[in-house]
């Protein structure tokens, strides 16, 4: 067993884990943060995307022990005081989800896109930047709309963006 200490959604966590524990397993099984999903075993679908030290990564391809001393944010950690993050609100408003399974990873990726590319995102940029996230339900049409709107929403809530 190896000891791992990290901050998840603002809370400090320390645990002894089998080194082969993936970060996503640690989040889901140890911390019961089941909003982060697993949809493949080849690091492609993006259902497991979380933020590791402020960057979007696939938590199925990171060992929990590699996240030692890191700051992790999951889908459960982005709404504040019961108010949805602008990107969450945009996905709801623009019907950017159906079954909801890929949604946490999509939203975490979308926030990362805005953090890197800014608040004015055109359709082609969004489609290209969603390269690492698969959705089988929506045909992406409304996800693209939601990301564009969420990016605008994040511009209107600069404090929220900084907090993330």
């Amino acid at each position: 067993m190896t000891t791992v200490s990290l901050t998840v959604n603002g809370q400090s966590v320390t645990a002894d884990v089998d080194p082969r524990t993936l970060l996503v397993q640690f989040l889901r099984d140890n911390l019961r943060l089941t909003g982060t999903h697993v949809g493949c075993d080849t690091s492609q679908c993006g259902a497991c995307v979380i933020h590791l030290n402020g960057q979007a990564v696939k938590s199925c391809t990171v060992l929990a022990v590699q996240a030692n001393a890191s700051v992790v944010t999951t889908i459960e950690g982005i709404a504040e005081g019961g108010e949805l993050h602008p990107m969450q609100a945009a996905f709801r408003e623009h019907h950017g989800l159906q079954c909801g399974y890929c949604t946490p990873g999509m939203i975490m990726s979308a926030i990362d896109i805005v953090n890197r590319k800014g608040n004015a995102l055109d359709e082609q940029t969004i489609r290209a930047e969603l390269e690492g996230n698969l959705c089988r339900c929506t045909g992406y049409h409304n996800i693209v709309k939601a990301v564009a709107a969420g990016a605008q929403g994040m511009a209107q809530a600069p404090m929220r963006q900084a907090a993330e």
């Binding site: 909003g35 996905f91 408003e93």
Partner: peptide, 19 residues
């Protein structure tokens, strides 16, 4: 109408079998 179920899905509170 915007979907009632989305509140739980966008916040990671959906409950799938593996959960």
């Amino acid at each position: 109408v915007r979907r009632k179920e989305d509140q739980r899905f966008v916040t990671g509170q959906g409950r799938y079998v593996d959960d």
